Simulated scan of single mutants.
Amino acid sequence: MKVLVTPTSLCRDPQGASLRRLRDAVGEVVLNPHGRPLAAAELVPLVADVDGIIAGLDEYDEAVLAAAPRLRVLARYGVGVDRVDLDAAAARGVIVTRTPGANAIAVAELAIGLVLAAARGIPRLDEAVRAGEWPRLEGKELTGGTAGVVGFGAIGRLVAERARGLGMTAIAYDPMLPDEAFAQAGVERVEIDELCRRSDVVSLHVPLLPETRHLLDERRLGLLPPGAIVVNTARGGLLDEAAARRALDEGRLHGVAVDVYETEPPSSSPLVGHPGVVATPHAGGHTGGAVQRMTDQSIDALVTALRGGRPDGLVTPAPAPR
């Protein structure tokens, strides 16, 4: 069997133990030749004779899937599947999996780090001191404030827990969960407009779907209290970047912190470079622990599916028993 592996962090050490384990299980392994997420046109020549793919943040559209007649399983190295055409995969009988929970701690910790960085202007202060300056920048205290968590899955729950540890009150919005999920966490459930009105910090943790694109748009950003902070470590497109830039320029927001962008890399983002913005390069899941968990879970799912079993983390319908 032949497997394509595209995640850059997994491809970094071709002779590492994880890829050796994968080769022992499947035979031939081909690695991403470009060292970055691949566009659909770049994937087409790579998938012609593969049986499985461990997929990073690449673009798996219908054309890519059509070019892979032998493909049986696409194992996402992460949780987002917005760059995979799930309908096309299901129509072709391609199993799609993901690694739920593998990077939850890493992303939640980065989200809290970005909140602190934006609240106190830490990157700007660091840059100034490195340049020989000694500025006084007025920061924002978080204790006593309200953290609004949009999306209350594994990551959102961890962010709420950590925000409470900072002395904040956590409230959350997630239309997909029962009331019990919020009650068990001791977090008040609210609708999204109420969350925006009450939150000094809003942190986004939902998938990018047609109905969530620009979930934080001009109108909802206008509902936020003066001096609020917005953090997006989920998916670019959830936040209307142009509207957020206007809110910063007009002094309505204290800061914006983003790890994800509408276009990546964010060469044309209106946010990058603004003094009120803290920007990181889609690094939420990049800790040693998270990388190893994503690696193990994605390899396990791929091998299980290729052997005719039922893998964990299924996104498309389960395969028929063999």
Rank of each mutant, 00 (worst) to 15 (best):
Y77R: 00
P69I: 06
V73M: 02
G35V: 14
P37G: 12
A104M: 04
A106W: 07
L43S: 08
N32T: 13
V26R: 15
G52D: 01
D24G: 15
R120P: 05
V30W: 12
G56L: 03
R23I: 08
A68T: 11
P45Q: 10
A104I: 04
V107W: 02
A40W: 09
V107P: 03
V64P: 01
D49W: 06
R76K: 13
G56Q: 03
R20H: 12
L116V: 13
G56N: 01
I53F: 05
V107S: 06
R120C: 12
T97W: 01
A63V: 02
A63H: 07
A25R: 11
D85Q: 09
A40V: 13
V30L: 14
D87F: 05
A106R: 01
A67I: 04
A119L: 04
G35I: 13
V107K: 03
A63D: 10
E28L: 12
G78A: 08
G78F: 01
V50M: 08
R70L: 10
A25T: 11
V64F: 01
L86W: 02
D82Y: 10
A90G: 09
G101N: 05
T99I: 08
R70E: 07
E62C: 05
R21S: 11
A102N: 02
E28I: 08
H34T: 13
A68I: 09
A41C: 10
I105T: 14
V64W: 02
A48L: 04
A48Q: 14
R23N: 06
G80L: 05
A119E: 00
A75V: 06
A48M: 08
G93F: 12
A68V: 09
L57E: 13
A39K: 14
L57W: 14
L116G: 08
E109S: 11
R83T: 14
T99L: 03
D24M: 09
E59Y: 10
D85R: 05
V47S: 11
G113Y: 03
V26N: 11
I112F: 10
G35R: 05
T99R: 05
I54E: 01
A106V: 14
R92F: 07
A118S: 15
G35P: 14
G113C: 13
V29K: 12
R72W: 04
L46M: 09
D49F: 06
R23K: 15
G56S: 05
I112R: 02
A48F: 06
D61I: 00
T99C: 11
V94K: 01
H34S: 15
V47H: 11
A66C: 07
G101L: 06
A106S: 15
D87I: 12
A88M: 08
G113N: 11
G80M: 07
I112V: 15
D61V: 02
I53D: 06
A63L: 03
D61M: 00
G56P: 02
A66D: 15
V79Y: 00
L71D: 00
V81C: 14
G93L: 10
A88Y: 06
L110W: 06
R23Y: 10
I54G: 03
G52V: 09
Y60T: 04
R21C: 09
I95L: 05
A102E: 03
D85I: 03
V115M: 13
V30T: 15
V30F: 14
A119H: 03
V79P: 04
V50T: 10
D61F: 02
A89L: 13
T97N: 05
A68M: 07
V73P: 00
V107R: 07
